[in-house]
Amino acid sequence: MIKIENLSKKFGKTYVLSDVNLEFTPGMIYGLRGTNGSGKTMLLRCITGMLKPTSGRILIDEKELYKDMDFPENLGMLIENPAFIGNFTAYENLRILGSYMTKNPDEIIRKALDVVGLDPDDKKKYRKFSLGMKQKLGIAAAIMGEPDIIILDEPFNALDEKSLEKVHHEICRLKDERIIIVACHDKTELDSLADKIYIVREGRFFDE
């Protein structure tokens, strides 16, 4: 379970997150909806261990992030534009990341790429990928190894209808025993996917 208590984050004098109190439990897909700059991405960054809150705390399975641990134990993420190595293929990009997860990551890489509709044996380099392919690789990196917490920030950007359906299906399949948080500005997409939706406005989170 992820428990967020009185979390605030400010840059200079501007608060991007104000006194956020939320709980995320396994087996649910949570949706965050808000306009650009509302604070969705900032909260997700805080949960991934990449952005230290100014105040408040994040508890993951009773352990405090940034205090008891630097990063969540088992987390996959796609945040904004995915960054990968330009002259590596999709498989090669994931192989480096996979080597930190298991000694033989081949199977989990192939599975993740297959789920999003990318060919693991495709020799095309990342720099020649279309926007949609880049997004798919970002999603594959996030779900690779089926981590306990999956964070997806605007995962449906640039995806065609068929891929969208595949990704939807996979997210729903993964939700058992996992926490999945999806940030998206598209109401229809989020309504069809999330079990619970929070509306984000000026760094504050409200129940829908």
Binding site: T48, G49, M50, M69, D70, F71, P72, E73, L75, M77, A83, F84, I85, N93, I96, L97, Y100, M101, A141
Partner: peptide, 15 residues
């Protein structure tokens, strides 16, 4: 640090 390295840090859980 702001690109691919961030993925690696997250996977290795170690800065």
């Amino acid at each position: 640090l702001s690109g691919y390295g961030s993925h690696i840090i997250l996977k290795s859980k170690n800065k």
